[in-house]
């Protein structure tokens, strides 16, 4: 209802209050999100070091950034990490959801067990897995004391494999959550369709492959969006699990940005890397949000 010129006081008041109520949030969002984004993007074109300065340097920071082997490592790691993390979480989540959907006795007990890691801080997860995977006191040691002396599992200390331990811990933390999303999707499927398919003689395998999984499209999409943005944001887990090491073997863009900005005093380059992270997420999120909000109208 827009107020017309001849509206009475109450109508006009009732037209303004909603906008007034929304405005603090709106103002905060415009300043703290979009204003800050513009500021950071601007900084990425300046010669900022310890503190923001405003000497314009054009694309220099981006130039430098792309020539840093450090950045390249973090991008390669990101590719490995995000790819495996998304695929494995989706597979485990879907698998567990399908299995749990078979009228499992004790579902009420299993579900919270699968889900609880989601309630933990990545710092806690990192701490736990760090010691669990430590060859000195963790799994390897346990296997040795149990008599399997040739067992070797030192990935967390190994430059080539350390990134996979990050994947492992991240999967541990979020796959239960993905399971819950798929389970909700499965429970939402009309049973009559399944009965009809069974009447048509579809085997369980075909039932899932041809009828059920295609209907989970929205759950797949949501899982992908949530997992990919979590992957790009992954920061605390690496800090707690490997500290970015050994060496720089598990550096990700998020940790790269942090160390360049706050410990190496290369704010311009840090801002440039943050801008690239934002663009990547935007490329995934904007089409998704657009589609979601479109169909609601």
């Amino acid at each position: 209802m827009a107020a017309s010129a001849d509206a009475d006081f109450k109508t006009r008041l009732q037209n303004w209050i909603p906008k007034l109520v929304l405005s603090p949030s709106l103002a905060m969002m415009l300043v703290f999100v979009y204003g800050f984004i513009l500021f950071s993007v601007y900084l990425s074109f300046t010669d900022s070091r310890i503190l923001p300065t405003f000497g314009w340097v054009g694309w220099e920071n981006y130039d430098k950034l792309w020539r840093l082997s450090h950045w390249e490592t973090s991008l390669i790691n990101m590719g490995i990490f995000a790819g495996l993390y998304i695929v494995i979480c989706t597979c485990i989540g879907l698998g567990l959801a399908i299995f749990l959907d078979q009228k499992i006795r004790g579902e009420g007990l299993l579900r919270p067990i699968y889900l609880y890691p989601m309630a933990l801080s990545f710092i806690v997860t990192g701490t736990a897995w760090k010691w669990f995977l430590d060859p000195g006191i963790g799994l390897e040691n346990v296997m040795h004391t149990w008599g399997w002396t040739s067992f070797e599992f030192d990935w967390i200390k190994n430059r080539d494999y350390a990134i996979y331990t990050v994947v492992l811990a991240a999967v541990w933390q979020t796959s239960g959550f993905v399971m819950a999303m798929f389970l909700a999707g499965l429970r939402g499927i009309d049973n009559e369709i399944l009965r009809a398919a069974q009447m048509d003689g579809a085997s369980n395998w075909n039932l899932y492959r041809r009828i059920i999984i295609p209907q989970l499209r929205p759950a797949f999409l949501s899982a992908f969006v949530i997992l990919s943005h979590l992957a790009i944001k992954t920061f605390d887990l690496v800090i707690a699990l490997t500290g970015g090491g050994p060496g720089r073997a598990t550096e990700l863009p998020a940790t790269f940005m942090y160390s360049y900005t706050f410990t190496r005093n290369q704010m311009g380059i840090g801002a440039a890397s943050a801008t690239i992270m934002l663009m990547t997420i935007a490329a995934i999120m904007i089409p998704y949000l657009y589609a979601e909000l479109r169909e609601k109208r």
Partner: peptide
């Protein structure tokens, strides 16, 4: 009201930004 969906979209997008982008100005 007019453009409320766009406003909401802006708010929603803010959930997903990598917070690295706001660290310095914040």
């Amino acid at each position: 009201f007019k453009y409320d969906t766009i406003l909401f979209g802006l708010m929603l997008f803010a959930c997903f930004i990598p917070f690295q982008i706001v660290l310095i100005p914040m």
